[in-house]
Structure formats: structure tokens, C-alpha cells
Simulated scan of single mutants.
Amino acid sequence: MMSGWAKKRFWKETSWQAVDGGFGVFLDGRAVKTPAKAALVVPTEAMAQAMAAEWEAQEGEIDPTTMPVTRAANAAIDKVAVQHAEVADMLAEYGGSDLLCYRATSPAELIARQAEAWDPLLLWAAEELGAQLTSVAGVMFQPQDEGALELLRQEVHGFDNFELAAFHDLVGISGSLILGFAAARDFMDIDALWELSRVDERWQEEQWGRDEEAAVEAGKKFEAFTNAYAFFKMAKT
């Protein structure tokens, strides 16, 4: 059985098929396992097909960085499944200090830009999720309504292991629980949601110019954000 990451490609044929509990990927007929040697069984055909394509695309040295679906599935099985409640609670805590709720105190142009970008998302969360979060000026912590936070917590706990693995990245990369939910529920295009998470950074670029090193790092985060969105959708297809 294949477990962990191989250093070099050793197989000729990559395939996927239905197995007990879902779908698996096979290398020359041998089932791929997770790094923790658990069965790499995923919930949907779309996810299995995507993983098989990642393995088939490997030539020579195996590069895990080119296999986001496989890596996310491994995380769902080896990490999230064994501590689902802890991961869900950790992500739910973002609601108490959500990026969208902490606004600039100056200048007026940035205050207006944040309001234009983020107020519709907070309104959507109130209508769609029943959770009304309040925006505040400044960076000092301000507690949110406990009832609203509990509703958000329950929503996070409702995700299965594969959805939660993806949601972890959607929230962690954007810094916003609400943006994570907006991506999960297709409130708007994923590229637009990414831009809404970058309002402050875009403002800084306009004032001080583009930082090439920061831009490269942002590009990596954007790729991870969109990969997480794709994985979330595969988990439900």
C-alpha cells in the first residue's frame, strides 16, 4: 500500500474507483493511503478524479505542492477527523474578532472604502446566517453578541471533515469567518471575495506603492484560497 509521499514516481497506471465509504485512488492497483496510513477514501467522484489527475501528472520527483486536493484530503482524514470539534471551535472564534468588523479611524477615504466593501457582507450574514455582527472603529477588542457567535459556531460544527478542512483555509487565509461562509455559500465570485479580504492591503499599495515580496506572498495565499474553495465544492459534488 502507498502511504506518505514517494520520492519518485514508481507506478505506470493511475486510477480511481468506488470503495467502501466513498472513492479511492490507486497506483498500479494499489490503494493510496494518507501519511498516517489511513485509507485515503474521499466522499465524491469529483474529488477522487482530481486526486488521480494530480498523481498522474507527477513525473520524476514527486512534488506535493502541486497536489492541493490530495494534501487537503490527507488533512481532512489525518487531522480534522480526529479533532473535529477542536478545529470547529478554533475557526468559530474568528467571529469574535472578524476582519470585517474592525474598521479604520482615518482617513475618511479608507473608512468609506471599508464600509462599501464589508457592510454588505455583514448584512448578508445577518440575513443568511441569522448572526448580526457589529463593526467598530479601531483595533481595540469589542465583544460581539453571544447569541450571534453561537449561531456561527453551530454552523461551523455542521461541516463534515472534508468541508471543515477546506473551511479552515478559507477562514484562516482571509482572516474572516464571514468571508469563509460567503465563499462556502457562493455569496459572490471567489475572486471578488478575495479582493474584499485585501481592502487594507490595496489601500496601502495605492499610498506607498507595490511591495514585490508582499505581492508574491499574496499570490501564494490567493492560490491557496481558491484551492480551498475548489476543495470545499468537490466535497459536496
Rank of each mutant, 00 (worst) to 15 (best):
A76C: 04
A76E: 02
E56F: 03
D89P: 02
P43I: 11
V69R: 07
I62E: 03
E59F: 06
G60R: 05
M51G: 01
D63N: 15
E56N: 14
A88F: 02
L40Y: 01
P68W: 09
A75E: 04
E45P: 06
M67E: 11
T70I: 07
V87I: 11
V42Y: 05
A57H: 06
T44G: 06
L91H: 04
A53C: 03
A36C: 09
A85Q: 07
V41E: 03
A76G: 08
E61S: 05
P35E: 11
I77R: 08
V69W: 06
D78M: 10
Q83A: 15
T66R: 15
P43G: 11
M67N: 08
A85G: 00
D63A: 13
A81Q: 11
R71T: 09
A46K: 13
R71A: 15
M51Y: 08
E54A: 08
A75V: 10
K37G: 00
V42T: 03
W55R: 12
V69Y: 10
M90Y: 15
E59M: 09
E59G: 14
A38W: 00
A48T: 01
V42F: 13
V80M: 07
P43H: 12
L40K: 04
K79E: 14
A39C: 00
E61L: 05
L91E: 05
A85S: 13
M90I: 00
K37T: 07
A46R: 14
P35G: 09
L91R: 03
D63C: 05
E86L: 10
V42E: 13
V41W: 03
T70Y: 08
V82L: 11
W55T: 02
A53M: 06
A73Y: 02
E59W: 05
V87G: 01
W55N: 01
D63H: 11
K37C: 08
I77S: 09
K37L: 08
A36Q: 14
V87F: 06
E45D: 12
T66F: 03
V87H: 08
L40W: 07
V42R: 13
I62D: 06
P35I: 04
A81C: 04
M47W: 09
V87R: 10
A50P: 05
M67F: 01
L40V: 04
V82N: 02
R71V: 14
A50S: 15
A36G: 10
E54Y: 07
